[in-house]
Design a protein around this nucleic acid. Structure first.
Length: 426
RNA sequence: GCGGGUGUAGCUCAGGUGGCAGAGCGUCUGGCUGUGAACCAGAUCGUCGCCGGUUCGAGUCCGGCCACUCGCCCCA
């Protein structure tokens, strides 16, 4: 038996209404907020992610699906990678097609994407090797914090529309690269005398990425962590001011948030504003629903003009898991035919085909089986299809031109002409 | 890469100390010659994850492997 590759999965028809709902609501949010869709290739030159995401990160080192393309006579095969995230690709497209060229100063480019991403790591709850992300980027010459507040406002609308409640918005500022580097030094100095009180993992983090010490879940480490300096106290003046304005914009829009100075980002390209929306308890250990932030300078890193950028991404898998049970049930139930045609006998069958065609031409979703079965069996099939109505066509109905339309939830039945059926179901 | 848990019917799961593989749900048939879902009767459903070992006999005990799953590392 050949099965799916580890960490991949089929999304079966019964779940598709949930996925489609999340996508539809996202598209509606993007439409309302002026975003246009972009699709970039599933794979890119490895170099794009290495430079964009950061050479030193674990992502680039051991968690990407990287392969060497077939060599040609005149060249070595080049290193390609299945995209681990989409921001670097979108910025690449923005540069490659000079999307900025026909923009006036201050004019923004708003793009969104929906599609699969890939990571090469051990799967766990809500984390797959092929996963689906929806994200958006705002790029241009402006880094107005009002942009950030507006994007978050859009996300709040999106979550509300999906009936996802109990989420928390966490915000932080990671500063400019220079102030972040200075803070990192300060942090390492503060950790150093406490190293003997920290766990083995934290020793490792101290060496590689000291900011990650904040994420340690071990209690004894948390005691040390509480005394460490936080980045918000070490911000450069411009970032401090930016963060203040950002919070003011959120306040003005009535958006609740919590400042979490220990929330850090793993990717090199983030500057200043970082945010997360964490979900309710349906998600297990991986409970971040949405992550995003500012990435001024990413464009330059991959060879483009100076560009400010702000964006976010969320995993569809986790968003679907977060849908409330009753909402999920409602969405599944709505994914059913309008009417199921039950026919009796060969003559009625031929007639039923024409009725089905006419109903479908009128925009009605029609389900029908082709086998001539006993009425009881056909009615059972009608109920199983979850159709709202059964349309009964036997010899009598063919002769009279009036069909039996039975409401399968109420159990009531009436005798109607084709036009009356169409009027009723439209 | 490292830990824990679990693999038995289409699905959810029972099966102390080895002794004829089970239940509920589903599916199918009938009670109902033209009316479904809550009723009744019956039927169908298995490589007990795989390979080997112990034993008269293994779903059960032992060894190895595989898969799934939760978590760690990391985090997009």
């Amino acid at each position: 038996m050949i099965q799916t590759v580890r960490g991949t999965r089929d999304i079966l028809p019964e779940d598709m209404p949930l996925w489609r709902r999340v996508e539809d609501v996202a598209r509606e949010a993007f439409r309302r907020y002026g975003f246009s869709e972009i699709r970039t290739p599933i794979f890119e030159k490895t170099e794009l992610f290495a430079r964009g995401v950061g050479e030193a990160t674990d992502i680039v080192h051991k968690e990407m699906y990287t392969f060497i393309d077939r060599a040609r006579a005149d060249s070595e095969g080049e290193s390609l990678t299945l995209r681990p995230e989409n921001t670097a690709s979108v910025v690449r497209a923005y540069i490659q097609h000079k999307i900025f060229a026909d923009k006036s100063p201050g004019e923004l480019t708003r793009l969104y994407y929906i599609g699969p991403m890939f990571r090469r790591e051990r799967p766990q709850a809500g984390r797959y090797r092929q996963f689906y992300q929806i994200g958006a980027e705002v790029m241009g010459s402006s880094d107005d914090p009002a942009i950030e507040a507006e994007v978050i406002e859009m996300l709040e609308w999106f979550l509300k529309e999906l009936k996802i409640t109990g989420t928390t918005l966490l915000i932080n500022s990671v500063g400019e690269p220079a102030s972040r580097a200075a803070y990192l030094e300060k942090l390492r100095e503060a950790i150093k005398p406490n190293l003997d009180r920290l766990c083995a993992d934290c020793h490792h983090r101290y060496e590689t990425n000291a900011l990650r010490v904040f994420d340690c879940k071990i209690e004894s480490c948390q005691a040390v962590i509480a005394s460490l300096p936080v980045i918000t106290d070490s911000l450069d003046e411009a970032s401090r001011e930016h963060f203040g304005k950002f919070k003011a914009h959120l306040d003005a829009r009535g958006i609740a948030y919590k400042v979490n100075p220990r929330m850090v980002r793993g990717l090199d390209y983030y500057t200043r504003t970082a945010f997360e929306i964490v979900g309710n308890d349906k998600l297990g250990a991986q409970n971040t629903l949405v992550g995003g932030g500012r990435y001024d300078g990413l464009s330059e890193t991959i060879g483009g003009p100076p560009t400010k950028g702000f964006g976010f991404a969320f995993g569809l898998d986790r968003m679907v898991m977060s849908l409330p049970e009753d909402e999920a049930g409602r969405l599944r139930a709505a994914d059913a035919p309008d009417v199921f045609i039950v026919f009796l006998g060969e003559a009625a069958r031929d007639h039923a085909f024409n009725v089905a065609r006419d109903l479908r031409a009128a925009g009605i979703a029609v389900a029908m089986e082709f086998e001539d079965r006993k009425m009881k069996k056909a009615m059972t099939a009608a109920a199983k299809s979850r159709a709202r109505y059964a349309l009964i066509i036997g010899d009598d109905e063919v002769a009279s031109g009036k069909y039996g339309l039975k409401n399968l939830t109420a159990g009531e039945q009436e005798s109607l002409t084709l036009d009356e059926v169409i009027a009723k179901l439209s």
